Computed example of a mutant assay.
Amino acid sequence: MTSETSFTRKMLGSLAAAAVAVGATLTVASPAQAAPALRFHSAQYDSPGKDTRSNASLNKEWIALVNTGKKAINLKGWKVVDKSATYTIGNVTIAGKGGKVYLHTGKGTSSQTHLYWGRGNYVWNNTGDTATLKTKAGKIHDTCSWKQKSGRTKVAC
């Protein structure tokens, strides 16, 4: 046993004894909570067919999130960000164990698995782009980037 380990054990023992003497409870700090197992799954960055800006065409452009953890995650306040626009997620819970949520560019009625940005123009650039997922606190949690590939309109993140 190193002298540092011995010293640490003695200090913890002394602190515990002091806590008991004053009727307090000694708690040892646990490691920081792990970040949610949430990430981008895929993006349909170029809606199939002609880019007509019709709502149907806009909704064929989407980006998907996946929860690879065991527990469901409430996404309220999380943001999906592009250089030109930001979407703030409402009170939506993504299921655990592979649950997915799709964010479509156009208008529609949102559900727990399909969200609608309500835009009248495309968000994701066909020639390459980066989507950023931010936490409620505004910290970058994940990104998904792509470059145009011949014949591809969808990418796995």
Rank of each mutant, 00 (worst) to 15 (best):
M11H: 11
A85G: 12
S3P: 05
D51H: 13
W117T: 13
G90R: 02
T143P: 00
K147W: 06
I73S: 01
G96N: 01
I89N: 12
S111G: 12
L12I: 12
N125H: 08
K149Q: 11
G99T: 06
V123N: 13
L58I: 04
T132A: 04
S57Q: 04
D129F: 07
I94Y: 00
Y122L: 12
V123M: 11
S47Q: 12
V80F: 05
S84M: 06
S145D: 06
L65R: 03
R53D: 15
T2H: 13
D82P: 03
T135A: 08
T86G: 04
T27R: 05
L75C: 08
A21D: 14
F40E: 15
N59C: 14
K71G: 01
S6A: 15
Q44H: 12
G99R: 00
A131W: 07
W62M: 00
D46T: 15
G98T: 10
G69C: 08
G120H: 13
H141M: 02
S145L: 05
A137G: 06
Q33R: 11
L115C: 05
H141L: 09
I140H: 09
K71M: 04
W124K: 03
D129R: 10
L26Q: 04
E4T: 11
Q148H: 13
A131H: 06
V92S: 11
G151A: 07
A29H: 09
T127D: 14
A137R: 02
T2C: 07
G13Q: 11
K100F: 02
M11A: 08
N121P: 01
A156K: 14
S42G: 14
A64P: 03
T130S: 05
A85S: 14
R39H: 06
T109S: 10
K139H: 09
